[in-house]
């Protein structure tokens, strides 16, 4: 068994802990426009203050410390400490060995390969450390880069919940994708 290969170190990014002192300001700055929160799901996009974000991150840390159903990471470049985004494996149900995955990259850092690299790390943790049987991602139908990223990693569309989101006066579907451990493993080792 090769334990030398770090679970947290990719080619371009690394998965790290939350830095409660410095990360909230970076995250809050990304909510000056609605792009990031809208790309993820149902949460109402609005500008968040540093305090808002800090409270949320404290809740995340508490949930991780007290339970075993959330694995949450802050994504940074391989070199340097800039915050690029977050990734999490959540709603883990151990009895069925299933979980959900969410990946968010700051709008200004998108298109540089960071998301792809971090997705690879998160899936390796999900399938090679948490031993999940399957992972699900759900995305609004207008999030085309997110859908493309999921498909690139072999996720298959499983569900289309119609007209779940109401934005810009239009309804949009919620798409849900699934990737089985066996499918992922066929392309890894």
């Amino acid at each position: 068994m090769n334990l030398n290969q770090s679970l947290y170190l990719g080619e371009r990014t690394r998965l790290t802990r939350i830095e409660l002192e410095s990360d909230p300001a970076a995250l809050a700055a990304w909510t000056k426009d609605a792009a990031l929160l809208r790309s993820l799901g149902e949460e109402v996009a609005r500008p968040l203050s540093v305090w808002d974000v800090k409270k949320r991150l404290e809740k995340v840390e508490k949930e991780m410390d007290e339970g075993d159903t959330l694995y949450y990471f802050h994504i940074r470049p391989r070199e340097g400490n800039t915050l690029l985004g977050w990734g999490k494996i959540y709603w883990i149900l151990w009895a069925s060995q299933i979980g959900n995955l969410e990946l968010a990259i700051a709008p200004s850092e998108q298109g540089k390969g960071y998301g792809s690299d971090a997705m690879g790390l998160l899936l390796r943790i999900a399938f090679r450390e948490l031993n999940l049987h399957r992972v699900a991602v759900s995305l609004p139908s207008y999030n085309l880069p997110g859908i493309a990223l999921a498909q690139k990693f072999g996720f298959r569309q499983e569900v289309c919940r119609r007209e779940v989101y109401l934005r810009d006066g239009k309804h949009w579907d919620d798409l849900s994708f699934g990737l089985l451990n066996a499918e992922w493993s066929a392309n890894h080792e």
């Binding site: 069925s96 399957r134 699934g178 089985l180």
Partner: peptide, 15 residues
Amino acid sequence: HEGRMREMIWRNNER
């Protein structure tokens, strides 16, 4: 019907 999430439940040793 809006979709089917594959192999979600593991019960009685069946997916």
